[in-house]
Design a protein around this nucleic acid. Structure first.
Lengths: 211, 211, 211, 211
DNA sequence: GATGAATGAGTATTCATTCAT
DNA sequence: TATGAATGAATACTCATTCAT
């Protein structure tokens, strides 16, 4: 019924409200220094309410990563669907997507690295963990597919497509993290976009066949 | 005097003993789950003793990063000192150095990212922070110098050398982190060395002038 | 009026529904580990509804005890009403009643001990507390009366009837509790009935005049 | 060495200090309403210190029970060692022992019933649980042995000795609990000793052969 | 210097209870 | 009446740090 639906939507809105608050607080203080009470206050809710929507602090954090993975995945799926695109166009679209990922959430990359610790992973519910793994693999796979196509068409030098995807992804996240560090250490200006642009350019030159 | 000196050396030995224990424990449990007691046990010392050599947990961790930064710096300085090397040789030597950095301490990259949080940096003593900043800048500068030389000699395409250094360093640390993640999530084999090799190859092709 | 009455009856039915659910949940988890939500679910009601019928968790628990006290009281009143019974018959009837009390609710004895804590009793409303006291005293009084009669008729040795009643009651509840403990600790078979039978037999021999 | 020993003794003294504080607090407030902070304050220690000596709240409570079980066991062992005692004397000594148990710690019986919940038992470490089981069985066994001897010598009517032991123990603890309840409900005077005396007398008459 | 027992502030999580709908 | 989402006080337990020996 309409009521069911409205409730469902209301519930989803609360989840988003909490996720957004958590994002702000985790970004500012980092996962360990952020307290659930901080997040509750930021969301203008009580601590208990957070637990109606997320099993625990770890899962709340993981949900942030999940959200960006979902975004990444949607963007990459779109790129691969464009059958009319040339290799060049696909590569450009991929780079555009990565810029947007950064704009969508410049700090979640950092949170995603919190997932590394096996101790952390143990506390996640199976379904959430499965979803994260699945989306990660799909995303990297989508990137790999772009490179594979380019090789098949003879534009790119031969390499294992998955390895290229890993490198592309690592380079992107490495730069995001490193620029974040630099900003803290040397209060530098934000060179991220231009650094990324140069990196993408080098990468393209690196994989393209030269004649 | 001799006694002074011997004491100093003894003290330094203790510091190293603790740093090595800390490295092991941080590697296994991560910075936040590792307790000072864990580290003390690993070092076969009592918790109180740790505080005779390090102001607090944050500084102990920072010292690990400092140690690898020192190693990196020494290696890069050596590369730049080899005036007889061609650009190619210097680039190769740089890559070799990075492999060795990884072998020297495969996990410290992860610890270094702990330094990102501004909250963390606030707890460091000024002198330690200064030393870290200094070594970081020197290291990146040394990398940049290699690229600069290549450009001056007309081998490499024109880019801001510091930007290239950032990209090179980001790519390296991004790959180390990402491969570590993958190992945890999918218990994959360790492709790090081959991924790094491919990445370096692409990078070289990317910066080299083509004719 | 008829409507009033129907409402009243409806209300009482709900109370019983909740009490039965609470009994099941308290039995399984114990008073402190059982949550109001558990009970609400078991009763197929919402948590808020429980508070329309019971002031708080303590009173809900006390109501369980009250219910068995009412049952005990009815049974014992019946025994004493049987003026045609001999002393022996009354004692047998008393023992029968205690078996039935156990069958009626094997776990409520344990819940009744929750009432012991003075902190717990402080939270009960005056009227409920008064009713519990009243029923307790009536029940013990009814037991005492049986022994008193036996003494007057010269069958039982002389003792304070109330003391005998206390002993009889303590022995019964002590055995119920102890057998429950044993079952948990050593997963023993259920010897309760036979232990009770032996205890009652000894008790009877103990109080009966011998000649 | 002497130092080792002194430390060991010091540690044991702390444990006792905490146990005594816990006994007071649990007695007054009951297990669930008593907080670890209450106990720490009573012991004039900090909350953290309690955890240096007891794994958690449940084990602290279980240690109280263990302590009285040890006392009971020592007393009953002594009774059985007195080979010169007649059956009558042994029974008297058993009854004396139970009076002393009550004096040793009138409230721990109540705490012992907290152990019943299987949820509670799950939180105890294996060794502690094993020790509790062992002492319980030894104690009941020692009581049973007294009755067995009496039967063999033809003084007592034939029953399963273990069943008699259970009844004796249940009667004792049932009376202790019931008298505690009564004191709370009706602010009665403390009839415990005289009730126990009567109960023991009846029990003795119950098991003794009559001729 | 070295110890390790003691500290006590800090926090994730629970759950009885309320109240707007 | 009935609901169930929201509350927020309460608390067991941890662990970096200290300091008397």
């Amino acid at each position: 019924m309409g009521i069911q639906e409205r409730k469902e939507r209301e519930k989803e809105r609360r989840r988003q409200q909490i996720i957004i608050a958590a994002k702000r607080v985790f970004s500012e203080k980092g996962f360990n220094k952020a307290t659930m009470e901080d997040i509750a206050k930021e969301a203008e809710l009580s601590p208990g309410t957070l637990y109606l929507y997320f099993k625990n602090k770890e899962e709340l954090n993981a949900s942030l990563s999940l959200r960006i993975l979902q975004y990444i995945n949607i963007r990459l799926t779109h790129v691969n669907k464009e059958t009319a695109f040339s290799c060049d166009q696909k590569l450009k679209a991929l780079m555009e997507a990565m810029y947007d990922v950064y704009d969508f959430d410049p700090l979640v990359i950092i949170n995603m690295f919190h997932l590394q610790s096996s101790e952390t992973l143990k506390n996640l519910s199976g379904s959430l963990l499965a979803e994260i793994k699945d989306l990660s693999q799909k995303s990297i796979g989508a990137i790999a597919k772009i490179f594979e196509e380019g090789m098949e068409k003879g534009f790119y030098v031969n390499h294992h497509p998955m390895a290229l995807a890993d490198i592309f992804w690592s380079m992107f996240s490495g730069i995001v993290l490193w620029e974040a560090s630099k900003k803290i250490i040397s209060s530098d200006k934000d060179y991220l976009k231009s650094t990324l642009a140069t990196a993408f350019e080098l990468f393209e030159r690196g994989i393209r066949k030269q004649n």
